[in-house]
Amino acid sequence: MGADNMKLTLKIWRQKGNKAKGQFQTYQVDNVSTHMSFLEMLDVLNEKLVSDKQEPVAFEHDCREGICGTCSLVINGYPHGPMQGTTTCQLHMRHFNDGDTITIEPWRSAAFPVVKDLVVNRDAFDRIIQSGGFISVNTGQAQDGNAIPIEKEVANEAMDAATCIGCGACVAACPNASAMLFTAAKVSHLAHMPQGEVEAAQRARRMVEQHDAEGFGRCSNITACEAECPKEISVEHIARLNREYLSSSVGGK
């Protein structure tokens, strides 16, 4: 059974807006229960700040069940906190100890400008998908769903890649701020499916071009992305992307 009176010291990055200079501010939170999620702990802090007529800490979140990809936060140096395969919203306070000091920072990357405090703008991800992360099929053009059998294993591998929630932890974790894992997950997912194979090479080329144009860094296979990915997507998919890209750029037309 857990305690419900942990005392924590939070060092939180506060920044008014994109142009403003940010700095850390220290807050004390008392009566933290081990059953709280990390975000509920921040809710408690914010509730207190609002009741003191201070501005609450801005952080993004939505589904709070680890699937929408909205929440972020670098917690003690770990994107989504120290527990692997877990989003911040599913991280619970039982993994922290009474008296801990916790440092909370936003995703830091030139391509993810800070909006406010811990909130960053991840539009670049949308633009990468828009550059080719789809199959060109209109509504109504589909043939029967069972017309093309797909090997169970292949569908599984595609699903492993498709499970990406677009949160940006890979970029936050990467010392190069590269979004290769994000880009690769979509390229690899669609390249696995026979329906997506048709455009695979072109898709890889376009998405990499967009990735580069957005100002993300270059992958040097450090694998920090995989280590911090809340969906544990493998860098294997980056190799797949590299293959698709090479065959498109060097081979192909």
Binding site: F134, I135, V137, T139, G140, Q141, A142, Q143, D144, G145, N146, P149, I150, E151, K152, A155, N156, A158, M159, A162, H189, L190, H192, M193, Q195, G196
Partner: peptide
């Protein structure tokens, strides 16, 4: 029925049987 066809065409990785069917 059309929805399933459409989703498959979009590349949705539905679960499959060993024979490759949905």
């Amino acid at each position: 029925v059309n929805i399933i066809d459409q989703a498959v065409a979009q590349g949705v990785p539905f679960a499959r049987e060993y024979g490759g069917l949905l």
